[in-house]
Structures are given as C-alpha cells and as structure tokens.
Simulated scan of single mutants.
Amino acid sequence: MAKEIKTEILINATPEKVWSILTSFDNYPNWNPFIKLIKGEVKVGNKIKVNIQPPNSKAMTFKPRVLAFETNKELRWLGHLLFTGLFDGEHKFELIDNGNGTITFKQSEKFKGIFIGLLNLENTKNGFEAMNEKLKEIAERK
C-alpha cells in the first residue's frame, strides 16, 4: 500500500531563477514555511539532514539519501522512519520549463511502509502548498 501527495504551481520565472532560490538551502529558515532546514552536501548518493514542520504539526528531522540532483530540473531524496520498510518517503521537487518564461513547479512525495495506514497527509500537503506559494512569491518578486 502507498500514499502520494502531488502539488504544482505555475511560476512566472525562469528555471534558473527558481532553482537558485530552491537550492539556496542556507536561506530556507528565512522564507520556507515548510522545510526549515537542509544541511549537508546535496549530491546524489549523499545523506543530508532535513527538518520539516507541516502546519499544525510537530517538527520532524530525518536524514534522507539524495537520489537525484539535476540542475534546473529535479531534486529528489528518500527518507525512512527508523529503518527501511516501516515508513519511507520519496520527496521530489521538479521544475518543468514551459518555454515561455514560466515554469511549472511540482512538489510530490510517495509514502510506503507498514505504518502507512496511520498517516494523515492533510497537514503535509498544506505545507507543500504553503512552500510552493512562497517560492512563487519570491521568484516573481526578484
């Protein structure tokens, strides 16, 4: 059994501009309402430290492994609760160049594991959407 959250937003900016904001991890505490911290060398195969705080929820810190890091296109990681198989989440940021000075920013996560039935994704989806809106605001303002 699996569950998935998918969100997307149209941003009036180039992929380069949005990618620059998205990958300036040191600035996350200043603007990002959902992901409060990303630490470590974000490179395929590396483990990083991520702290999230969905609206109306407690903050959570985990150490996912980076699965994809393609400039101006995709960042994806896989995290686990305690160990693989209990509760796993594959998080993905995707930038799609619409070829007209806009991009479609997609943020999604696929959840799997034996504890998946206990998961309420509403707060997490709200966190994704809040982050998407703020990313749009910043990218279109600069």
Score class of each variant (00 low, 15 high):
R65F: 02
E122M: 10
N100C: 05
N56C: 10
V66T: 01
N56M: 11
L78Q: 02
H91Q: 08
K125S: 03
G117R: 06
I48D: 01
A59T: 06
S108M: 02
F128D: 02
K58N: 15
L119Q: 04
L75A: 07
Q107Y: 10
T84N: 05
F83K: 14
K92Q: 08
G101Y: 10
F93V: 03
H80T: 00
G101I: 07
L67T: 04
L95Q: 00
L119H: 05
F105I: 06
P54S: 10
R65N: 01
T71V: 13
F105E: 07
G85H: 05
F115C: 06
G117Q: 03
L67P: 02
E109H: 08
E94G: 03
K58G: 15
F128A: 04
P55R: 12
E90V: 10
H91I: 11
K112Y: 15
E70Q: 13
D97R: 10
K92T: 10
N123V: 09
S57R: 05
T71E: 15
N56I: 10
L81S: 00
I103M: 05
P55K: 10
L75D: 04
V50E: 14
I116K: 09
G79W: 14
I96P: 04
K106S: 06
T104L: 13
N72L: 11
I48W: 04
T84V: 04
L121H: 06
F111R: 01
F111N: 01
K63D: 07
T61K: 12
Q53V: 03
P55H: 13
E90Y: 08
K106G: 01
K58E: 13
K112M: 12
S108H: 03
T124K: 10
L95Y: 00
F93H: 03
F69H: 08
L86A: 01
G85W: 08
G89W: 15
N120K: 15
S57P: 06
P64V: 09
M60W: 11
E129C: 02
W77K: 00
K73M: 09
L86I: 13
F83V: 11
L95W: 00
T102M: 04
T61E: 11
K63T: 09
T102R: 01
N100Y: 12
F62T: 02
I96T: 08
L75Q: 10
K49V: 12
K112F: 15
I96G: 00
L118K: 09
A68Q: 12
E109S: 05
V66M: 04
G79F: 14
E109N: 06
R76N: 02
G89P: 13
L81F: 15
H80E: 01
F83N: 00
N51S: 12
F115T: 05
F62L: 08
D88P: 14
K63I: 05
K125L: 09
N72V: 04
L78T: 03
F115E: 01
L121S: 02
N126P: 13
G99N: 07
D97N: 14
T102Y: 02
V66F: 06
A59P: 09
S57A: 14
W77L: 00
T102E: 01
L82D: 01
E122S: 12
N98I: 05
L75H: 08
D97A: 03
F105T: 03
K58L: 12
G127D: 07
N56G: 07
I52F: 04
N56R: 12
I114Y: 09
E109V: 15
T84P: 12
A68M: 13
S108K: 07
L67V: 06
G127F: 09
N126L: 15
I96S: 01
T61L: 09
Q53I: 02
F69M: 15
F115G: 00
N98L: 12
